[in-house]
Design a binder for these strands. Structure first.
Lengths: 202, 202
DNA sequence: ACTTTCAAGTGACATTTGTCATATAACCAA
DNA sequence: TTGGTTATATGACAAATGTCACTTGAAAGT
């Protein structure tokens, strides 16, 4: 019998999956939560074989929980189950040595199959992500440029950005100019849009 | 026997719900799709009792499909099943006379209960939304101002916005100025931020 | 009929932004 | 040690942006 814990903040999916997994003879759902902190508390107590973790949850993300599982050297195998194929998330998950990384864009049978496979020691990554890994646009901005862009994203004007980062206004404009040139745009708005679609921001 | 159709673009939820609904003795899932256009084509052919519609789907949204069901005077009862409580969506759904409007933030049993209730002629709205309806900060911007703001949000400079909306550049600046004054800000960036947090944008 | 609101516009103006050239100092790698 | 990158800065300039004060016509409300 494989014991499974489910952390998923969308109740509809949480309850549907719980019931579905329970129907399998070799699986038993020992608990579930809709936020990361509750999940982590439960996991320490229940030590299930597998923990299915959504990434975007209140309080703690699924990746945070996976990190904690690894740090505590627990035997519970984390399976990340998330909506979108975002490179940054995937890389963090690989570093946290998750047992599987699945997209919600695949059928529930895939999840059930994945649970059984990770119990045999296999590691499973959604193929979309592995392909993406090679082609992913990585952030060309320096830390300093990112700090300026983040401040700009808050809607602050040049002077306020300068004050916030203890720079002169001219330097801030220079950074912004450098950012625009790297991203091939000509305004804060466009730069922010690009940074956002590439998930460098927010 | 209640026949049910399921349009939900997240495969994990789609397949999980399909299997779960099939377990109920009085429900039968006659078909499902992961995009709106396929759903509409199927619905015309299958004429199920109930159509569960996600809003954000490729090609046609669930609200588009609900509109079409109403326009074609079909007896299929639309149930909207969506992630977030957005006032604009809810209002459109009410106008399309949907049979129920549920959030994915509720358990799957609620959906099953809702299906049975709509078959008795009841209309079901998620309580969060009805409360929200009364308290919602309503958008103070005119349609025209919104059009300008949307264009600005795309990162377009004044001239491009003017060209897009067949206005003069001066008029566009005036609209923007009016928007800023209504929202109490002094830049496009800040205005966009406020519009976004209030869900008037995106 | 009168008023308000909205859509659309013009012109002038000050301010902010974006661009560019250029400079220095620190650090890191070949 | 030489060169590249980053962090920081200045000054000058053109372009874009935001503000204000107006005007006009149409639609909607009372």
């Amino acid at each position: 019998m494989i014991t499974v814990y489910l952390a998923e903040d969308q109740s509809m999916l949480n309850s549907a999956l719980t019931q579905l997994l329970e129907l399998e003879d070799d699986l038993h759902v020992v608990g579930s939560a809709t936020d990361g902190a509750a999940a982590w508390a439960d996991l320490q107590r229940l030590t299930p074989d597998v923990a299915i973790l959504d990434i975007e949850m209140p309080k703690l993300t699924g990746l945070d929980v996976a990190d904690k599982l690894q740090a505590a050297q627990m035997l519970t195998k984390p399976i990340i189950l998330t909506t979108f194929a975002q490179q940054a998330y995937f890389e963090r998950a690989v570093n946290a040595q998750v047992a599987a990384y699945l997209l919600k864009d695949s059928p529930s049978d895939d999840l059930i199959a994945a649970i059984r496979k990770v119990m045999t020691g296999q590691t499973i990554y959604a193929p979309e992500l592995v392909v993406n890994m090679l082609t992913a646009a990585h952030n060309p901005l320096t830390d300093r440029e990112m700090a300026v862009l983040v401040a700009a994203d808050e809607g602050l004007p040049t002077k306020a950005i300068a004050a916030k980062l203890f720079l002169s206004a001219g330097t801030v404009r220079n950074y912004l100019s450098a950012i625009f040139s790297k991203l091939g745009v000509h305004s804060r708005l466009e730069a922010i849009k690009i940074a956002r679609t590439n998930k460098w921001l927010q």
